[in-house]
Write a protein that binds this DNA or RNA. Structure first.
Lengths: 203, 203
DNA sequence: CACTGCTCATGACAAACGTCATGTGATGAG
DNA sequence: CTCATCACATGACGTTTGTCATGAGCAGTG
């Protein structure tokens, strides 16, 4: 029997500790390191070289996906998986693009999670069926790169003038992109467009 | 030694299960029921009459605070406490107003949580020191009831006409309230105002 | 009772915004 | 090479906001 060396990264102590305890019950899994932030997770991974890194999506410092991206470059032998409370389709896509091997919501049980860790360690992938269905039905973002960029800058309610300056575009161009984005998303105005794009994980 | 009968409510199976396991390690705590949604938590509480109800703030169906409110009315002997990932000052205030005895972030350890459960059972209160500091420094919402109501309706980017209709107000009045709210919050426009109010838990 | 603060309204003006027509370059597919 | 698409721009138009002045009714407080 091979034992799987696991890194746990989650900023919620309650979950991390509890998870460590539950995974310890599995004979073939051993938690070799824990981290509460993105940078800490990277440092721990370098120091302990785990087989599988279980990363929370939302962490201070750097989110799970960017940690996964760094790990992929630095420790190719380390498989990564993302655990999250908010299962947005866009996040799933970003994660898979970053080479993450599994994407699971926190609604699974610890036993299931243990199974998924084994699956990942064996070189396979796992995606929560429900999230996968959402992601497929949600489809790809219809927005062009610039439209997305401008929409992001509009996300905190900034006026057009400010967006134009930050994007180094003319105000007219910004309005055009915003208008295009809103109509593509079927929104009445840019603010509603921002909301929709967020919901679908496109921003 | 008295044993404390605990109800656990959290929609994230991973956390709930793990938590149950860790609390089971404490001799004087026994988890008598678990729930994944607000309504389920209420039903379980009625059936099992726990001493302390540990409620997640964000749950499908009904959030932790409204569950606490119902419990207070139905089972006055049952002490309630809220556990949450997002520690917004406004939530803390709402919770305390609803008679919740403790408000803790998920960044505490299971051992600490066990201690807090005992504290609550003994009839005392507990509020995370950092959250308390935030809540005090954040202060009360400067918005009047109507301003808050209108701002909430504006939250999804709806145009003034729609807000006016839904609030049964004239468009001019809506603009006045929105303008007042934005200036009280120091925001450039209503959308930024919505963001700020959300951050501080005032919507 | 006077005063203050909240609610609700109207009207008016300037600024910001949404939309459309139109045009130029660049890039990539056929 | 041609055609479509994207990036970027301008100017113009009408609409939607933000802001301000002003006022009326109604509650609670001193």
């Amino acid at each position: 029997m091979t034992t799987v060396r696991v890194l746990l990264a989650d900023d919620e102590h309650l979950i991390r500790g509890a998870l460590a305890a539950l995974l310890a019950l599995e004979d073939d899994l051993v938690v070799v390191a824990e981290a509460a932030t993105g940078p800490e997770a990277l440092a721990m991974a370098r120091a302990h070289r785990p087989d599988v890194a279980v990363l929370d999506l939302e962490m201070p410092g750097a989110d799970g996906v960017s940690v996964a991206t760094s790990l992929r470059a630095e420790l190719p032998g380390c498989r990564t998986m993302i655990v999250t409370s908010h299962g947005l389709p866009g996040h799933l896509k970003r994660a898979l693009a970053a080479g993450v091997r599994a994407f699971v919501p926190k609604t699974v049980s610890a036993r299931q999670l243990a199974g998924i860790i084994r699956t990942v360690h064996a070189g396979n992938r796992y995606v929560d069926p429900e999230l996968a269905a959402d992601a497929i039905s949600a489809g790809d973002s219809p927005l062009t790169a610039r439209e997305t960029e401008v929409l992001e800058l509009a996300a905190d309610g900034a006026p057009v003038a400010e967006i134009a300056e930050r994007a180094s575009l003319s105000q007219g161009t910004v309005r055009n992109y915003l208008s295009a984005a809103a109509s593509k998303l079927g929104a009445e105005n840019r603010h509603a467009a921002v909301r929709l794009a967020r919901q679908r994980g496109w921003v």
